[in-house]
Write a protein that binds this DNA or RNA. Structure first.
Lengths: 220, 220
DNA sequence: AGCCGCCTCCCCCGGACGGGGGAGGCCCGC
DNA sequence: GCGGGCCTCCCCCGTCCGGGGGAGGCGGCT
C-alpha cells in the first residue's frame, strides 16, 4: 500500500509543487491539503496519513504548534516532516523538540523530497544532512549528540526574551517595548542584553537580521 | 493554438507548482524551465514562448536583469510576468521599468495565476490589482497614473543610498560602512538619514525591517 | 528546605545614533 | 551656461543604546 501524505502549507503554489513532486511517485499518495496548522488535527483524524509535510510558517497556527498539537491529541500520530525555506532555521530544533521526525528545505530537489518522505514513512528519523551540518557548524558544536543539543537548549531564548525579540523585529524601541509589556525600561534592557548575548550579536539591528535570517520572523 | 510558457525560477518546487497549475489548463502549455536568469535568453530564442514567468530573485542573474536582457537582445520578445513573493516589492517598479508586462504573487491562488498568464498573453498589461493597491497605499499615492509612478521614482533610493542600506541589512555600523565604502562617517550618516526619510522610518533597525519586508533583501 | 532559573528593577557610563543645518564639487541634462 | 541631483564632508546636540555591575522576589524542582 502506498505512503499517504497530508500537505500543510499556506501557499497554494507550494502545495501544488509538493503534490506534483510526490504524486509523480507510484508509491506515494497525497490524501489531503491544509492551508493552516489550525486545520490539521481534524484532517489527521479523518485521513490518517502516514506522513504530514508541514510548513513552519503559517498565519494562524505555525508548524511547531501544529506539530505539538497533533502529537498531543492524536493517538498513533503520523510522521511529521517540517518544511522550511531556510537553512540554519531556529525552528529546526524547536520542531525536533516538538517531536517532528525530520525536516527538509523547500529548495531541495524533487528527488530529495521524495526520498525524505519515504524515509520518515519507514520510521527513519531523518534530518537533512546538509542542513544539519550547517546548523552544527553555525553553532560551533560538533555533531548532533545529546550534549550538543542540550547546549543548544541552554542557549535558547526564554519566553520573555523571545517576546522582546519579536517586538524588536517589529521596530519597537526599548521604551515602546516596556510600555507594551507593562514593565520598566530597565527590565527590557536586561532582556535585550540577554538576547544579544544568546544570539551572539552586537546590537538590536543585528538581532533583527538574525531573526529574519533564522526564520524566527519572516517577511510577508 | 495554446499559450506557451517558459518558467524561470531557482526553486524546483515553485517551478513544479507553476507547471502543475498551468498545465491543468488545456489552452496553456509549459514549453520549458530554467533555474536562473542567465539561462533564459537561449531558451527564449529556441522555444519562442508567448509568456515568460520569471522569478525576481535568482542566484546568478535576477529577474530584473534577465527581463532587460531578453527585451534588449531578442526580437519580437515574449511577454514577461515577474513572479514575486512579496507585496510592496521594491522590485515591482524596477521590473515594470525594465519592461515586464505584469507581475503576480507566489501566494496567489491558482485561478489567479492562470488568469494573469492568459491576460498578458492577450497583450493586456496586467498588474495584479491587490498588489498595486497595496503598493500605492503603502506609499500614500493615488492610483497607477504616470504622475504617481514618477513620484515613486523620485522617492526611490539613489545608488549610494541603496548600497548603504544593503550594508545596514548586513549589520554594519556607520563606522564600518564608512570603512567599507572608503568615505567619512559623516557621509555615511548623511546617506543613512536620507534612507530613513525615504523609507519613512525612525532608525536603522526599522530600515532593516522594511528592507526585509519589502524584499529589498531576503533571508537565505 | 534549598537551589536555580526566570523576571523584575536599579546604578553608572561611554559610545553610537539620529536630527538639524550647512556647504562645496561633480556631472548631466535642459 | 545654469540648475539640479548626487556624493561628499562638517558642526552641534540630545537621546537612545548597550556593557558591566548588582539585587530581590517568585515559582518549580529536587
Amino acid at each position: 500500500m502506498p505512503v499517504t501524505v497530508l500537505l500543510v502549507d499556506d501557499e497554494p503554489l507550494v502545495r501544488a509543487g509538493l503534490r506534483a513532486v510526490l504524486e509523480a511517485q507510484p508509491d506515494i499518495e497525497v490524501v489531503g491539503e491544509a492551508a493552516d496548522g489550525a486545520a490539521v488535527i481534524p484532517l489527521v483524524r479523518r485521513l490518517r496519513p502516514d506522513v504530514v509535510a508541514m510548513d513552519v510558517r503559517m498565519p494562524l497556527m505555525d508548524g511547531i504548534e501544529a506539530t505539538r498539537a497533533v502529537l498531543r491529541t492524536v493517538d498513533r500520530p503520523p510522521k511529521i516532516v517540517v518544511v522550511t525555506t531556510f537553512e540554519n532555521d531556529e525552528y529546526v530544533y524547536e520542531a525536533l523538540r516538538a517531536g517532528a521526525d525530520g525536516f527538509l528545505l523547500k529548495r531541495a530537489r524533487p528527488a530529495e523530497i521524495v526520498h525524505a518522505v519515504r524515509l520518515v514513512a519507514e520510521g527513519e528519523s531523518l534530518l537533512f544532512p546538509a542542513s544539519v551540518r550547517q546548523l552544527a557548524a553555525a553553532r560551533g558544536d560538533g555533531d548532533r549528540d545529546p550534549a550538543a543539543r542540550a547546549a543548544l537548549e541552554r542557549a535558547a531564548l526564554t519566553g520573555r526574551e523571545a517576546e522582546v525579540l519579536r517586538l524588536m523585529t517589529r521596530g519597537l524601541s526599548n521604551a515602546e517595548i516596556a510600555a507594551r509589556l507593562v514593565v520598566g525600561t530597565e527590565t527590557v534592557k536586561s532582556h535585550v542584553s540577554a538576547v544579544l548575548v544568546k544570539l551572539g550579536v552586537r546590537d538590536r539591528t543585528q538581532a533583527v537580521i538574525t531573526a529574519y535570517e533564522s526564520g524566527f520572523v519572516s517577511p510577508g
